[in-house]
């Protein structure tokens, strides 16, 4: 893994809300094809970190560079709009599920295809050949993705009627529809039962094997330890450790952050 190119490089990223340092000088890098986990206690700044990467927040300081392994182009993401960042090739899911509740399952995924297609008013009204072909491609690609995440039997169901686990999978499917090379998953296993989690692990492995790199926030340690190539640990907005699952497990700073000071010491 260590020889594959770096696709995401974050240098000295900070985000302050007034006097609160939600993220303080964090460096992270992700290589092509890796599954990287970002862990830390509640309130450590993990989701804020995601929001900075995806353009929902503007960072106070630091640089974010994203390079597309497909053409080697590197872009600085600071100050870019969320939709531009998705267009470059980084898609995300949300911690508190953000599907389009009254749209059908298929339509949710079709929205993901939006940034890869072009038809506007003219195409919509006159439905010329190019638009019709594009529309068919959107539908077929979305259906393929639904098959992959196992929701193809519920294409016409409204998204809000899906079970919790299915909604989380649909979010992943929708993010995949934007053709990302880096996928950010914010607590994908939250609220899932053990069986659903198992299926999720298999799904994430499959996505990774297809050439997508993955950065995930997760609290389920079993999932994190079994899945990730490398782990970054954050606490109080600072990066306190990084390394392979084994290294992080033994790291005294991590144990302290999760379990508190040793009383006997």
């Amino acid at each position: 893994m260590s020889d594959s190119p770096i696709i995401l490089k974050v240098e000295g990223l900070s985000k302050y809300f007034g006097g609160i340092k939600a993220i303080d000088n964090v460096d992270i890098d992700i290589r092509q094809g890796e599954i990287v986990a970002l862990i830390g206690p509640n309130g450590a700044g993990k989701t804020t970190f995601f929001n900075c990467l995806t353009g929902i927040y503007t960072p106070t300081a630091g640089d974010i560079y994203l390079s597309d392994p497909r053409n080697g182009k590197t872009t600085r993401l600071n100050g870019k709009k969320p939709n531009k960042i998705t267009e470059i090739g980084m898609a995300r899911t949300f911690q508190n599920i953000r599907l389009f509740p009254t749209m059908s399952v298929l339509e949710n995924v079709m929205i993901g295809r939006h940034c890869r297609t072009k038809a506007l008013i003219f195409g919509a009204v006159f439905r010329n050949k190019a638009t019709r072909i594009e529309e068919t491609q959107i539908i077929e690609r979305s259906y393929e993705l639904l098959k992959k995440i196992g929701l193809h039997r519920q294409v016409n169901e409204e998204a809000r009627n899906l079970s919790y686990g299915a909604q989380r999978r649909l979010e992943i499917g929708r993010a995949l529809a934007t053709d990302p090379f880096l996928l950010l998953l914010d607590e994908p296993a939250a609220g899932m039962n053990p069986k659903e989690t198992e299926a999720l692990v298999a799904l994430i492995r499959e996505i990774c094997a297809e050439g997508h790199s993955i950065l995930l926030i997760e609290h389920d340690m079993k999932l994190v330890m079994s899945l990730s190539d490398r782990i970054f640990v954050m606490d109080y907005g600072k990066k306190i450790a990084q390394g392979t699952p084994e290294e992080v497990r033994e790291n005294p700073a991590v144990i302290k952050a999760y379990l508190g000071e040793d009383v006997d010491a």
Binding site: T54, G55, I56, K81, P82, N83, T86, E87, A91, R92, F94, R98, L99, F100, P101, T102, M103, E107, M110, I111, G112, H114, C115, R116, T117, A119, L120, I121, G123, A124, V125, R127, T131, E134, E135, I138, R174, A175, A177, T178
Partner: peptide, 26 residues
């Protein structure tokens, strides 16, 4: 025709959730 197009879907999505919409590249 507009409602049943790429544009119409984007409008609906915008009505449902703006942040998710942006994150999906709209």
């Amino acid at each position: 025709r507009l409602q049943n197009s790429r544009l119409g879907r984007a409008w609906l999505a915008l009505r449902e959730d703006e942040i998710a919409c942006e994150a999906m590249g709209i």
